[in-house]
Computed example of a mutant assay.
Amino acid sequence: MTTIEKIGEKQSHKLRGFCLLLMFSIFILGLSSWNTAEEIPKTAYVLRYPSYFGNRINTTADNPMTEEGVDLGRRLFYETLLSANNSLSCGSCHMQEKAFTDGKKLSRGVDGELSERNAMSLVNLLWARKFFWDGRSVSLEEQASIPMVNPHEMGQSLLVSASKLQQTSAYPELFSSVFGDEQITGKRIVMAIAQFERTLISANSNYDKYLQKSYQLSREEMNGMILFNTAPNPEKGIRGANCAHCHGGPKNYLELFHNNGLDRVSADPGIQQLSGQRNDHGRFKVPTLRNIALTAPYMHDGRFNSLEEVIDHYSEHVQQSESLSAFLQHESNIRNGTSLKLRPQEKKELLAFLHTLTDTAFISNPKFSNPFLIRKINKTK
């Protein structure tokens, strides 16, 4: 071997050694970055909904939705460890088969006491900006925390909930897959639950199929839809049920707060309790009508057991008061009337249309179901 060849071989060995060292360094750096929340590979969650729902959605930049986060949130939504006596979960008062209500006038908490108001349906929350009957929360993250810490609901601090989950064998690893490390905090708990709640989209009812031109409404349902969307004008011979002012649009939801004439003086002041304004007395959030046939009893206090009773209220029993919604004042199908005065056939038609808002796919979707009914998580180390 010549001198030149020997020099070339030495340089080749040095180059190979340098390359190996460089590759090892990159590997070590990769392991280091792998343990950071920013670098952990996650699968972005793709929200799917019809275009007519619109894109004015309520998400937060610091809680991006991922498949892993939604899965964790679903488990936490049904996790009884988040209650003081390990007996209640979010799903206890928000059951999938009842469109995420509980079928009760008022819900019973861990201390045996009844809630102050009826459990609202958790549906299409992605488009909501205020939560609860009085709109006290402005994000799903905040909304998720309130019933957990309320002493008359789940009755447990987020600090204690985090500690209980930290002691399980499964949850630290699940939190790590979402947040980058095994630390469990109250903030992370509500972030995951909020991610899951944003996926609770109902958009496959017969009404949706009608909007998509794949379902033909019956004559009764069509008449009911026309009544629903029409304001009465007896002077012009126009009859209507006047529903669209508060429940209009393809989502059947407008984020409004109204006094709907349940009482002349309300025992529950509604949003007046927060605002202190006289005109807010007895005003409550207008609920969505999606899956309304599944969510009895109705109103903030659960006073009506059936949709027939609700329709009768608006037809004959609206109570006039200072804070009564302007949409309900003197709206009637007869001249100088103070309530709608719907005919029996019109009530029947309106009821038929309301039933077209039921989404059977929503209440049977396995992605929204209780995962613990399928397989148990090992809750103790």
Results as ranks from 00 to 15, higher is better:
residue 11 Q to V: 13
residue 13 H to P: 00
residue 15 L to F: 15
residue 15 L to E: 11
residue 16 R to W: 07
residue 44 A to S: 13
residue 46 V to R: 10
residue 48 R to H: 11
residue 49 Y to V: 02
residue 50 P to R: 01
residue 55 N to Y: 13
residue 57 I to V: 14
residue 60 T to D: 15
residue 60 T to L: 14
residue 72 L to R: 04
residue 89 S to C: 12
residue 92 S to C: 04
residue 95 M to F: 13
residue 96 Q to L: 10
residue 99 A to S: 13
residue 100 F to Y: 14
residue 103 G to C: 07
residue 106 L to Y: 07
residue 108 R to M: 09
residue 110 V to Q: 06
residue 111 D to Q: 02
residue 114 L to Q: 13
residue 118 N to F: 07
residue 124 N to W: 06
residue 131 F to D: 03
residue 132 F to M: 09
residue 134 D to F: 00
residue 137 S to Y: 15
residue 141 E to N: 12
residue 157 S to C: 04
residue 160 V to D: 14
residue 163 S to F: 14
residue 165 L to D: 03
residue 168 T to P: 11
residue 173 E to R: 06
residue 174 L to N: 00
residue 180 G to V: 00
residue 181 D to S: 15
residue 187 K to C: 02
residue 190 V to K: 03
residue 191 M to C: 13
residue 197 E to Q: 11
residue 199 T to K: 03
residue 202 S to P: 12
residue 208 D to T: 03
residue 210 Y to P: 07
residue 212 Q to N: 08
residue 215 Y to I: 05
residue 218 S to P: 13
residue 224 G to S: 10
residue 226 I to G: 00
residue 227 L to T: 03
residue 242 N to I: 01
residue 245 H to E: 06
residue 252 N to Q: 12
residue 254 L to Y: 04
residue 256 L to Y: 09
residue 261 G to C: 05
residue 266 S to L: 07
residue 268 D to M: 12
residue 270 G to N: 00
residue 274 L to P: 09
residue 276 G to I: 01
residue 282 G to I: 01
residue 284 F to P: 13
residue 286 V to H: 03
residue 287 P to W: 02
residue 287 P to F: 07
residue 287 P to D: 02
residue 288 T to D: 08
residue 292 I to V: 15
residue 293 A to N: 10
residue 293 A to Y: 06
residue 301 D to V: 06
residue 303 R to D: 11
residue 307 L to M: 15
residue 309 E to N: 10
residue 311 I to E: 02
residue 312 D to S: 08
residue 320 Q to A: 09
residue 326 A to M: 11
residue 328 L to S: 03
residue 330 H to P: 02
residue 335 R to F: 09
residue 337 G to C: 08
residue 339 S to F: 01
residue 351 L to Q: 05
residue 352 A to Y: 08
residue 353 F to I: 01
residue 354 L to K: 07
residue 357 L to G: 00
residue 357 L to Q: 03
residue 364 S to Q: 14
residue 371 P to V: 00
residue 374 I to E: 13
residue 376 K to I: 06
residue 379 K to T: 07
